[in-house]
Design a protein around this nucleic acid. Sequence first.
DNA 1: CCGGGGTTACTGGTCAGGCCAGTAACCGAC
DNA 2: GTCGGTTACTGGCCTGACCAGTAACCCCGG
Lengths: 253, 253
Amino acid sequence: MSFTPVQKVNAYEIIVGQIEQAISDGTYGAGDRLPSERALMTDFGVSRATVREAMRVLQATGVIESRPGDPRGPVITAFSPRVLEKSMAKLAQLDSVSRVELLQFRLLLEGHASLLAATERTDEELAEIARRGEDIADLADQPDVRFGERVNRFHQAIRRASHNQMLEICGNVVGGVMAEMIDRRLTSETDRSSRVRTSARDARALVAAIRDGRAQEAAAISTGNIYRYYADDLSSEETRRLATMMQSYGAQM
Amino acid sequence: MSFTPVQKVNAYEIIVGQIEQAISDGTYGAGDRLPSERALMTDFGVSRATVREAMRVLQATGVIESRPGDPRGPVITAFSPRVLEKSMAKLAQLDSVSRVELLQFRLLLEGHASLLAATERTDEELAEIARRGEDIADLADQPDVRFGERVNRFHQAIRRASHNQMLEICGNVVGGVMAEMIDRRLTSETDRSSRVRTSARDARALVAAIRDGRAQEAAAISTGNIYRYYADDLSSEETRRLATMMQSYGAQM
DNA sequence: CCGGGGTTACTGGTCAGGCCAGTAACCGAC
DNA sequence: GTCGGTTACTGGCCTGACCAGTAACCCCGG
């Protein structure tokens, strides 16, 4: 006979649990309204402070949204990736996660996003990708627009065309974090204009590969582009850790 | 001149923001103690209820932990993937995320985990991988041990050997979700024993490839195994959506 | 000198009751 | 009918209080 460690559960946790349960078993669905705080406190037999703490947790977890004054009560929200993005961004910014790891992960995501986009994209999505690709070239005349963000928007369109939400969301997070890193570092003006030129050219090649359904090539171009962007800053050990991955995509280092 | 929409910020949100800021700029580090709720309420000039709501949010986000009676106050926790796992699991269980998407994402993660493990693993990690691979074969004599979980542990060891934390954590989440799906569905006893046999054999092949540093092969074996496990249940459309990916790993469908 | 048990000053968890600003439905006047 | 105000709610926040825990402290017996 084994004992299980005692773990007392706070009152508000029970409320959170019950409401999450009610949502997961279909009692409540997205768009439905929860009773008001005052109603919940009689339902659960607790004080309003306790109900409110439960509401805060549900709100922070992205389960509900509430607005003062609305007589209809808090609304159950469809899942929003906001929470996921935040906690993933926290992971990415963790000191223990090295540059190489982040870059590896990014190559992996962008590579497969391009791969899938080449076969799954609709015509509208292709047009959107092409448009954002051309937006990169326009950066030459817009010195105040952030470079990393603009390029990330291009990749974002590709990720969306992959028709894989997990890939899309994770890619958005990692891409966002790294775009910010770029914009923080990119100060030199001449450096910028040269990067704009090569990025615009690379983007066109990638768009063409996706347009023609050349999936493997798209992945190779995509990962190759990203790799070359960071190549100068990498140590030989870091380069080694990327070699196998790049090879698997058939990309040039 | 453009107007920005008014968005009032709740008092507790300001507290959350300030504390998160203090952590991200190094004022507080993991293991440090926050002042007590009563101290914070004078610091921020709000009531305890408001402080407590802020604490609840920070706790739900995995930033702090607190327990009653401890005179040292709430402790700032080192990052734990718990929150990430929960929100990712919620995403994975979402109806809008299809089986194919989940499977695509899993193939992507496990494929590259195997790829990297083949070149990056230490001898200890290889031993651990091999051990857990053999554990799968032992399942034949242990009808009450959950199959999906055991196999997932094997993959978990591989993910760890990839030396990429992002890959490891995301893989753990997706792997965990899918292992649970397997264990819920796997009821037939004869089905189980045949699956145990093939999985054990597949695992040995994968271990050998990782041992010998045959990275591409390891990725192909790994993704091939996973694919074949689900192949019977897939529609032709789902199969098509996986084809490009499988091809990119050089895996057999 | 040292160890152990009780005291004490805190901690977080919860409750009750109250005020305020805001929302949206309702309803009557035009 | 439409438009304006009224009204009955909502959530946000506050005050003040009690309880069960925790851990440091201190004192007493060895």
